[in-house]
Design a protein around this nucleic acid. Sequence first.
DNA 1: AGCACTAACGTAAGTGCTTACGGAAATCGT
DNA 2: ACGATTTCCGTAAGCACTTACGTTAGTGCT
Lengths: 324, 324
Amino acid sequence: MFLQSQAELALGSRFRALSESLYGIANAAYRATGVELDAHWFPVLRYLQVKGPAGVGEIATAIGQTHSAVSQLASKLQRSGWLNRKSDRGDARRSVLDLSVEGERRLSGMGPIWYAIRRGAAAAVTRSSGALLGALSKLEADIDSGRVQREILAEHARLRVAKPDIKPFRREWREHFYRINAEWLERHWTIEDIDHRVLSQPEKLVLEPGGAIFFALVDGEVIGTCALLQELPGVFELTKMGVETGWRGIGAGRLLIQAIIQEFHKRRGKTLFLESNKRLGPALKLYESAGFVHQPAPRPGSHYQRSDVYMIYEPKATKARKRT
Amino acid sequence: MFLQSQAELALGSRFRALSESLYGIANAAYRATGVELDAHWFPVLRYLQVKGPAGVGEIATAIGQTHSAVSQLASKLQRSGWLNRKSDRGDARRSVLDLSVEGERRLSGMGPIWYAIRRGAAAAVTRSSGALLGALSKLEADIDSGRVQREILAEHARLRVAKPDIKPFRREWREHFYRINAEWLERHWTIEDIDHRVLSQPEKLVLEPGGAIFFALVDGEVIGTCALLQELPGVFELTKMGVETGWRGIGAGRLLIQAIIQEFHKRRGKTLFLESNKRLGPALKLYESAGFVHQPAPRPGSHYQRSDVYMIYEPKATKARKRT
DNA sequence: AGCACTAACGTAAGTGCTTACGGAAATCGT
DNA sequence: ACGATTTCCGTAAGCACTTACGTTAGTGCT
């Protein structure tokens, strides 16, 4: 599921959909058992049944909705004979809702269906995690207190000004190497077989043959990666560079390329090339400005179907010498 | 919170409210950080950003909404320049959505705010219960499979035809003695001091002085209760009778009274009386038909403020003898 | 006592979805 | 090959809320 992959970011959508599902289930149960009740009415009607006559505002805060919602629903329920509405003697602003005799009668036989719904839902909740109800309560309290809100803003203040750090490969970041590259590969092409193998076994197919992998991190979150692959002794390929959409434009790509080049020099490599595709405009710009020079494509013996750009790294020093 | 007291019955409302809260939080975070994005757009925009161009239906199923919702949102986003819409060559029924260059640009800097929201929400979720996300996923799957629906109907089929069982007091049902009586007491009056004491210490104040308590159960759920209280040796009071709203009309009240009377005879009691209130019409009918006869109220030395009905049990046998 | 202020509510309009419906293109069965 | 069915989508209307606003009644301050 796509929404699940977005983790906490799409909770709003998921809760909304869950809400509709649950209303649907309850309504289907009512219909199937011949009960004329809409699940949306339950909070108001049940509140009146349990607590007796109550004002609009009182009900609204109790069930977590606005007074308008309660007022409008009350009008509807009044028309269909569920409840009575009279204005409070004593405080003429208030209008007091009360179950009608007929409404009370209709509700009085709901025990079986309510318990059935409750048991069915409880079973599902238990299967999903025994503590779901408690968790929801705490979450609601947390949100109401404004704490979540404040924390988000605090985090953002830190993340916005954070600069990317470049760090060498660590095992716990392994999955990010796959994830980040899969994102743009799936987007523009498909993941070729060679891609899949390299991405899923980076230690064996990149590091052990004398290569290197770097990650770009922002405040501990991996947001980009790049690999240096040794094809033949002294011949290296810059490959699998990706920065998460959403984190572009803070210089992570440039830093990654610089780290790769530095590593290439450290290993006394002779040739550093890369293959890419014309559709990756911003990346190509980065390569060019880092010292890569276009060559006739495709490279003889290219591994990739999608490759139509071939570049070789020519250090500034070399070019400068040429010009003089 | 009232909704929480309704446990699984009001999950729909709670999820809906949670959904609104989370959208609100996200939107506030966007606004506070100067990002022009509506949290409701996130699923569609993010899907396009990650997966690239996609059809309306594909997006709809991926994000769990209807194609109509996606189509309408797409129109809006198209008008405001976020995305382009063109019909698919190859299949003219499809219309393909794609982020515009401008839309892509706007989204490209969202990393910090998205991660901030994600962290804030994740922290709240962790505080509420580490497993909430997994629990939600399982719950969604369970609902989608139709299992919850089926179980509710099966439960209802059993509960609807179930007859109440009358059982003597057990410690594990203790709280129900309080809960069920509190319901009608709070509803019509307030819980007097003597009520509170008796209800919260039934063993000490009812059973030990030679009384009894019975519960009415339906398929294992306690739905009603009644107490026999020994005031003086041989003088008993029928009191604290209640049947849950929702379970009235299946004869639980009558069975409870019969059980009390039987217990009264078993203990060779001489007098069985009760105090009640005129507002409790249905209950009074039950008392009358069970053999209780009205006496001038209030009873001398009554314990209760609310009492304006006083009845004494006169077995049919006695009345029959009188008539002859 | 008078006057700003607040509280309680109803109404109108907006919103983010849904269901219902219909049209057009693709696919299937024969 | 061609009618029946299915797929894909857009539009319209509905729904369950919301926010915005206005009215009326109570409250607090001087």
